[in-house]
């Protein structure tokens, strides 16, 4: 039934259904989005009247060393989380896609960090990273370290430590994205390959990965958006320190706005982040779209 007249339906019936959603959209998305753009051309500290300053916020960004540090750190997050969220979860998905008794329990356990709050995860990992904690015990015991490191206080190790925590928390989520994909691959493909004598590595390389390209594309996009927005782990574990070693764009924007009340400058940085994220999503779409699914 297309636009045919439906008994009892007035022309405005559909609109009555969508009104609540549209009001919320207007108030909490459209209005703030417009405000964000306006704000980035203003100087505004919440207390005094906003002042129009043209593109001054943007020229300030260009000369702000901390902004570039934050951008670099965000990109390091992005690169560091790539193997953790795009590559490892694919292997995990292959592992938990086997038909074994109890496999659901393992899937559930791997997913556990996804459902717990980042605050709880951050606290838990502070215990793991402790100078006398498990990680130092394992690494010194294995001879990889001469003496324990205070990971979160070390300008070199703090960022990799946070990347590890963020990656660890979300791996289960990406595993499930891949598992959804794996379950669409017909099993007879693998059986045929086995008959032809293909090893597990060959099956992964030549059947699984090519067929999973659309899912890998989804994982890459979500990973980029996730990595560029990392905030809570930093807030809980390092507050951007030591010496700005874990200052990311998300944290810097929050700190500028809600610790220093520079709403205009923070919004301008937010817009730059927004443009960057859209550019990355488009680039990723371009790169993966043309790929053929079958080899």
């Amino acid at each position: 039934m297309a636009a045919g007249r439906i008994p009892g339906q007035r022309w405005y019936t559909p609109y009555l259904f969508v009104i609540p959603a549209l009001v919320l959209f207007g108030v909490f998305f459209a209005w703030p989005a417009i405000t964000a753009i306006q704000l980035s051309f203003l100087e505004y500290d919440v207390v005094s009247q906003p002042v129009f300053i043209g593109v001054e916020n943007f020229t300030r960004i260009a000369g702000d060393g901390r902004f570039w540090t934050a951008l670099l750190n965000s990109l390091l997050f992005l690169v560091g989380m790539f193997p953790l969220l795009v590559v490892v979860p694919l292997l995990l998905a292959v592992l938990v896609n086997q038909r074994l008794p109890g496999i659901r329990t393992f899937r559930m356990l791997y997913y556990l960090p996804v459902v717990t709050s980042m605050v709880a995860v951050g606290v838990a990992w502070e215990y793991v990273f402790h100078q006398q904690g498990v990680l130092n015990w394992i690494l010194t015991g294995a001879g990889l370290l001469d003496q324990p490191i205070q990971y979160l206080l070390d300008p070199f190790w703090a960022l990799p430590a946070l990347v590890l925590v963020e990656g660890w928390k979300s791996m289960g989520f990406y595993m499930m994205i891949y598992l959804a994909g794996l379950q669409t691959i017909p099993t007879n493909l693998y059986e045929a390959a086995k008959v032809d004598g293909a090893t597990a590595w060959h099956r992964l390389r030549h059947i699984t990965v090519p067929l999973m390209v659309p899912y890998i594309a989804v994982a890459v996009t979500v990973e980029m958006l996730d990595a560029m927005q990392a905030f809570t782990s930093i807030y809980v574990m390092t507050r951007g320190g030591p010496q700005d070693a874990t200052l990311t764009l998300g944290y810097y924007i929050w700190s500028a706005a809600f610790e220093h009340y520079e709403m205009g400058y923070a919004s301008a940085m937010g817009l730059v982040l927004w443009v960057l994220m859209i550019a990355m999503a488009v680039l990723n779409y371009r790169l993966t779209r043309g790929r053929t699914v079958m080899p």
Binding site: A33, I34, Q229, G250, W254, S267, G270
Partner: peptide, 11 residues
């Protein structure tokens, strides 16, 4: 992105 919306939404 949530970081971008945070400030204007708060206002």
């Amino acid at each position: 992105p949530s970081e971008v919306m945070l400030i204007p939404r708060f206002l």
